[in-house]
Design a protein around this nucleic acid. Structure first.
Length: 395
RNA sequence: GGGCGUGUGGCUGAGCAGCAAAGGCAACAGACUGUAAAUCUGUCGGGGUUUCCCCUUCGUAGGUGCAAGUCCUACCGCGCCCA
């Protein structure tokens, strides 16, 4: 049963959406009652899926719920080339081994969002491993060098004299060919994918297929306001623990609140407006946002607990309920050694600096002298900064 | 293949023959607070018996200097121009 409700269609085509080509055509297709093949390609370039990426899966889920067929392309082949879309420098090439490692948990992560039983999952090595050189060259003939170079991030690199690998220019061809292989009616992707998605249209045309319509989504910024990217370390992963997830949301820049509500929660527009009116204090709005996000991936209970714990530790400055335990049989400890052994500091120099900066509390008392040996007691609590705690256990 | 450049700490980017190496970003910490925001301040290769000492870093390998990121040679990577 295909849902053709106008309102639903409108909703799916607006929230978090950057651009649609061709919009009129897509609306017509969605209203036709025909089951569409909605394609999303994802390269397993890192082990963890983050909530920015997850937006696209939520979008797919919406299509899925309307009765359309989701075709998920796992780019196990293309991951070895590296999409240049979001890169200002050449990406290091991933080995097959790394890719397989990343792949392992991919589907289970995606399964947290999509009903995988109804999804057509395809690995693009299926056709690329078999591709003949001659066919590849044929693909290359569809585009000119100028067309490819014109693309913004290539152009920037070109102008700045930064290297561009020939293989990088081929990436859009591969992604586009995927569309041909699965006969996609619609492809979605991040707004940085526009070029690749359009290549799909061209290549389908060349192969005398109906051209897919394309929809690009807004890009979610990372916690620090830069693009969310695993290599920047500014991501919230969908597998992050509730407390961690909650804390990360609380730590992000205030200006990001709006886009996070739009792209990472399921609250309706009016609900979002309501939340924003509810308090003048961004802290509270952020807390609400954090709770929404944690609920989605871990359930409401976990979200509530995460909030309580956060308030306890950060607002009320209390000791967390759970903390790692460090077992030792020493009676006396040289403080820098202790901090290193407990992994609270990466090196002794760093440990000393932390102590000198007044970041280290032992049983609630700030210790500023790292030369003084510490008398170790059972149940002693060491705190470094505001969120690293450890409890000592004597064995 | 020839010519000219270039290669610096997580990134970016200065660097005179005497530097653990300016500045910016990121990170970490402190103060403050609305929070792990913002702002301000400090730290930011490793180790030590710590107002000082030692070790390891500036593409790689050698060389010349009391001394080399800084000069020379070779090699590797990258860019530009010419072919």
């Amino acid at each position: 049963m295909i849902v053709t409700d106008k309102q639903k269609i409108e909703e799916i085509l607006t929230r978090g959406v950057e651009e649609i080509f061709e919009k009129e055509n897509l609306i017509k297709k969605l209203q036709s009652g025909k089951q569409l093949r909605i394609k999303l390609g994802i390269d397993p370039t890192g082990p963890r899926i983050h909530i920015g990426r997850a937006f696209q899966f939520w979008k797919l889920k919406a299509f899925q719920e309307m009765g359309h067929k989701i075709v998920l392309i796992i780019g196990d082949f293309t991951a070895q080339i590296g999409d240049a879309s979001d890169k200002q420098a050449m990406r290091k090439v991933l080995s097959e081994k790394e890719i397989n490692g990343n792949l392992k948990s991919y589907l289970s992560q995606i399964g947290k969002i999509l009903d995988l039983k109804k999804v057509e999952v395809r690995y693009n090595s299926e056709w690329f491993k078999k591709m003949k050189i001659k066919d590849f060259v044929t693909l290359q003939m569809i585009f000119t060098a100028q067309q490819t170079i014109q693309r913004r991030n290539f152009k920037e690199r070109w102008d700045e004299g930064k290297p561009i690998g020939l293989h990088e220019l081929d990436y859009p061809l591969f992604q586009g060919y995927d569309s041909v292989m699965v006969k996609a009616d619609v492809e979605i992707g991040g707004s940085d994918q526009l070029f690749n998605l359009q290549a799909g249209r061209e290549i389908q045309k060349y192969f005398k297929q109906n051209q897919q319509d394309i929809m690009t989504s807004k890009m979610l910024n990372g916690l620090d306001g830069r693009k969310m990217s695993t290599s920047w370390g500014n991501i919230i992963a969908i597998l992050d623990e509730p407390a961690d997830m909650f804390g990360k949301v609380m730590s992000m820049k205030d200006e990001l609140i709006d886009e996070y509500f739009e792209l990472t929660t399921k609250l309706s527009e009016s609900e979002i407006t309501e939340v924003k009116k509810s308090s003048a204090n961004p802290r509270d709005i952020k807390a609400r946002l954090a709770k929404e996000i944690v609920s989605i991936y871990h359930g409401e209970k976990a979200a509530e607990m995460a909030e309580e714990e956060f308030n306890k530790v950060h607002r009320d400055r209390e000791v967390p309920t759970d903390m790692p335990v460090f077992e030792t049989d020493k009676k006396e400890y040289f403080l820098p050694d202790l901090l290193c052994d407990t992994k609270m500091a990466p090196s002794k120099n760093e440990a000393k600096r932390l102590v000198e900066a007044g970041a280290v509390d032992i049983d609630d008392k700030t210790e500023k002298d790292w030369k003084k040996p510490v008398e170790v007691k059972d149940g002693m609590i060491i705190k470094v900064g505001s969120r690293k705690f450890i409890k000592i256990k004597i064995i």
